[in-house]
Amino acid sequence: MNRIKSSITNNIGIFLVFAGPAVLAFLAVIIIPFIYGIYLTFTSWDGISRNKPFVGMANYVSVIKDGPFWSSLGLTVFYVIIAVLTVNAVAFALALLVSGKIKGSNFFRAGFFTPNLIGGIILGYIWQFIFKNILVSIGDTLNIAFLQKSWLSSSALAFAALIVVTIWQYSGYMMLIYIAGLTGVSEDVREAALIDGCTGSQVTRYIIIPLMRSSFTICIFLSITRCFMVYDLNLALTEGGPFGSTTMAAMYVYQKAFSSKQYGVGQTEAIILFLITAVIAVTQTMISKSKEVEA
């Protein structure tokens, strides 16, 4: 009896020593705030006062009525669709170009990946300079009308600027994942198809792409989840402007909570944003997983 008891205390000791710090930090930073965050959606809190009055479903009602939130969410969905398609198309094309026996292939890979070393805030400022000064100057010198006015001063072009920088930022990263997938497609299969009379593009379309579905699953999942939560780049490049026309959902939530001091509403919107992202990301993963082919 005593031995069982001492082995239980022993096990508790082992658990606390090994898993204790990790579990404590994990619970304190993610799980508890997550649960507390759900509670916050039923309160109205201004960020300063000690008490957080319980308001029932009032926050949910005001979110439903919050037109700008839904339009920023719609804009975000639009941004995600365009960004995911273009980022992955560019990344896959780069991967095809870089892999294979090419001179300086490692050099190119390293170069395309460089933007990923730098945070969104700093990238955003660099590109703000490019759009505001460099491109305008190029437009003036060469008399190209659509460059002569800064892209960041018109809503549609500021949105396009966000897409351009997103492609530049993420394509190198996704390219690396596609290269890893490409090297997984065996040379034998490719050669067999070529001998059977396939052209290069047919091999890509009917052999390589189907065998690389898992790389596509990963890259699309990563780009969906990242683009939905875009904040740093949005803040540094356009600051949501001109006139709030490029405010993405994550930035809207931030402003709702920390600028308008409506923490309850902001938290409710954060959770709605999360649920939408999760549903889309999980559905996409399930659909593309079911299409994956075993070689």
């Binding site: 993610i30 705030p33 997550f34 939560m229 938290q267 954060a270």
Partner: peptide, 9 residues
């Protein structure tokens, strides 16, 4: 769970 969901709490 993205950071934004636990940011405010």
């Amino acid at each position: 769970v993205p950071f934004q969901v636990v940011m405010i709490p």
